[in-house]
């Protein structure tokens, strides 16, 4: 048993090395010094308090989206629509904040209402994908993809339309909220303990939900064999809907955090791709919630670390994305190869 575990571990390390090698080849082809590039990524993520706090504030929403898709993956669903769910969550939060910012309501309450609105928005968008899936027979991948476009278009419309900045309509975003509606951060840095606390809380919640509850077990049963689950008395479509809703709530929270603690306004790219990144993290950790936090942190660090690359090495910052994508691909590839190898024996 132990031997097999070590062997599996060896395979995973092998996948990481392969991914690094492959990225190195890509870098060489682009004419960049690979070692230096890696060094800059590490520096960009860890060399200063500002950088570290940036990594932590990227970690929070990524934790939320990863937790969300862990739930939908457990139910056998590919919730591609999570990007749109973040977006609509952010729109709802922005809407609530705009509505109340000039009222006499204390700012703490406004923020709380903004978060609740974000959760509702994310849940609404996820519910649409869920209804399309359970009642309309539309695969959640297609439904989600379509809803993502609708959400983006809706955000754009709001930004250059009804919610445009006084005088200028710019796709760069709405007018910034006053400081009092910013999620409280540590002094001098951008990082909010509240946001991170929420992210960590949710990941722990999801871990226990999937591991120790009837709800989690039933979701898993549906994900692995919905016909059998139905025969065993699990109300399948209700659970599928609930998985969507829960994921939507977490995605909406991520959107609310993006609005209140990162951008302080609504922008067309408010999701920062954390939805798709969350899907990648979930795949990389083979849907085991226990690994969600460290791997999400690693991905957040890659994201932030890559920001410097264009300035210092004239490389595009999407190199981090390349590395992340290649990592996931190689881990999946090596896992597939491993299973094949073992089955043959």
């Amino acid at each position: 048993m132990n031997k097999i575990r070590w062997l599996n571990f060896g395979f995973q390390i092998g996948a990481v090395i392969l991914a690094l090698l492959f990225t190195t080849v890509v870098l060489l082809m682009a004419g960049a010094p690979p070692l230096q590039a890696y060094l800059y990524i590490i520096k960009g993520a860890l060399s200063s308090i500002t950088n570290i706090s940036n990594v932590l504030s990227a970690w929070a929403p990524l934790l939320l989206t990863t937790s969300g898709v862990l739930i939908t993956f457990a139910a056998g669903l590919w919730n591609i629509g999570i990007e749109g769910q973040i977006m609509v969550g952010a729109i709802f939060t922005t809407g609530a904040l705009r509505l109340l910012q000039n009222s006499t309501v204390p700012s703490g309450w406004i923020l709380l209402i903004g978060f609740l609105a974000g959760m509702a928005g994310g849940a609404l968008w996820a519910a649409l994908a869920g209804v399309l899936k359970t009642f309309g027979g539309v695969n959640e991948i297609f439904g989600g993809l379509g809803l993502n476009f609708v959400a983006t278009a809706f955000a754009l419309y709001l930004i250059i339309g009804p919610w445009k900045r006084p005088g200028i309509a710019s796709t760069s975003g709405t007018l910034m909220f006053p400081d009092k509606l910013w999620l409280p951060t540590l002094p001098k840095v951008q990082f909010s303990v509240w946001a991170l606390g929420l992210g960590i809380l949710v990941v722990i919640l999801v871990y226990f939900l999937l591991r120790g509850t009837h709800f989690g077990l039933r979701l898993k049963a549906i994900g692995k064999n919905s016909k059998a689950a139905l025969l065993m008395g699990v109300p399948t479509w209700q659970y599928v809907m609930f998985a969507f809703l829960l994921c939507g709530v977490f995605a909406g929270l991520a959107g609310a955090i993006q609005v209140t603690s990162v951008y302080h306004r609504l922008t067309p790219a408010i999701s920062s791709g954390y939805g798709f990144l969350g899907l990648m993290v979930a795949m990389l950790i083979n849907y085991q919630a226990i690994w969600a936090a460290p791997v999400a942190l690693f991905f957040a660090a890659l994201n932030i670390g890559g920001i410097q690359l264009p300035i210092v090495l004239k490389l595009d910052s999407s190199l981090s994305g390349v590395l992340q994508g290649i990592l996931v691909l190689f881990v999946l590839l090596v896992e597939g190869a491993r299973q094949r190898l073992f089955r043959k024996r």
Binding site: F215, K224, N225, M232, V234
Partner: peptide, 22 residues
């Protein structure tokens, strides 16, 4: 049956769920 789940998990699934935690 649900491939990937253990016998224990099957028996828990088939029984009336009592409480939230397993």
């Amino acid at each position: 049956l649900v491939p990937g789940l253990t016998l224990t998990e099957h028996f828990i699934l088939a029984e009336e769920a009592k409480g939230f935690f397993i």
